[in-house]
Design a protein around this nucleic acid. Structure first.
Length: 319
DNA sequence: ACGAAGCCCTGCAAGC
DNA sequence: TGCTTGCAGGGCTTCG
């Protein structure tokens, strides 16, 4: 179950292994993920080089670039318009005047093509870098094949994941545009949580898992952060005071940062891109520990379903 | 606008 | 042993 720390761990691993690699082709074995994989992924991505990998919430963003030397018909058309039509970005900024000077002759113009592959691991998704000759297994749905003979292989048994590409600014994509602040970033604070929780009666745990409130918190870390902040998960979000939200925001930061530093939490499905597990599981205080003693007071950890999700807490330490 | 439920899907574990 | 059932989960979508 990759949450922010797991996705961040994967991102860091991939930067080591695939940055600067050129994608030769995209193999789609099963397009039926959360949304059917569009054909433009296999059509438009090959030829591009991985120039960066970033993360927004639990989305991985592969920034791709390609130099294109296009033969241009000598139409009365500016370089910018030509680029716009082809959805390309002009690299060499010669003036329109210069371009018009060669009008009447076929000429070659250099562009860079920018694409972003956006990938969400859903619940059970994982990424491995393996030689393309390794026989794919049942749930290995997509390969990005690099020119060196290995590939980035996307496995997702439960198929809640997604992969798609955009040539526009990925942060304006409808799935990403309305996301809340990054919990490890500067704009996230108790003040923000307090502000957006006014008049909200939903349980604070469900509130924390809303992407518009803050990104990257799944069930595991929402439970853990609330335990740290000594707040009951069932409390209405709007009933929590500013000082409590200050504590909670700090608890969220600490929990996620420690999990990132430990390489994420491995329960069933999560492994790094090199196959190593994460080591945060040993440090979970309440998640999955129903009946076990609370690490602070020793009373048994309780479990309750809140908004269709299991919640774990200590009713003595959390109020 | 809000809150709750539904849905997508497979693997695993528990119960019979 | 082999079946059925329930549960897990993210996050978009639908319904009230």
């Amino acid at each position: 179950m990759p949450e922010l720390p797991e996705v961040e761990t994967i991102r860091r691993g991939l930067i080591q292994s695939i940055l600067g690699r050129k994608i030769e082709k995209v193999i789609i074995r099963n397009p039926r993920l959360r949304w059917p994989i569009a054909e433009d992924l296999a059509d438009d991505v090959p030829g591009h080089t991985v120039k960066g990998i970033s993360r927004r919430g639990k989305y991985l963003l592969f920034h791709l670039t390609q130099e294109v030397h296009a033969k241009v018909e000598p139409y009365r058309i500016t370089r910018q318009k030509h680029a716009k039509r082809r959805n390309l970005h002009v690299v060499n900024e010669h003036s329109e005047h210069v371009f018009n000077a060669v009008r009447g002759y076929e000429t070659t113009v250099a562009y860079s093509s920018q694409e972003t592959v956006i990938l969400h691991l859903g619940m059970s998704g994982s990424l491995r870098v393996v030689p393309v000759t390794v026989v794919p297994e049942k749930h290995d749905h997509v390969d990005l094949v690099f020119d060196g003979g290995d590939c980035l292989r996307f496995r997702d048994p439960r198929r809640f994941g997604a992969i798609f590409k955009t040539s526009a600014d990925p942060l304006t994509h409808p799935l990403l545009a309305d996301l809340g602040p990054e919990p490890l970033g500067d704009t996230f604070s108790g003040e923000w949580l307090f502000k957006v929780s006014r008049n909200r009666r939903v349980a604070v745990k469900a509130f924390l898992m809303e992407g518009k409130v803050v990104v990257g918190l799944g069930n595991i870390y929402a439970n853990e952060a609330l335990f740290r902040a000594a707040i009951l998960p069932s409390r209405p979000a709007g009933s929590i005071s500013l000082p409590e939200y200050d504590t909670l925001a700090e608890a969220i930061r600490q929990t996620l940062q420690e999990a990132v530093d430990s390489g994420g939490t491995t329960l069933r499905d999560f492994f790094h891109s090199d196959g190593e597990p994460g080591y945060f599981r040993q440090r979970l205080c309440v998640y999955g520990r129903t009946g076990e003693p609370c690490p602070q007071c020793g009373r048994p950890i309780e479990q309750q379903r809140i908004c269709q999700r299991s919640s774990f807490f200590c009713s003595h330490c959390q109020r």
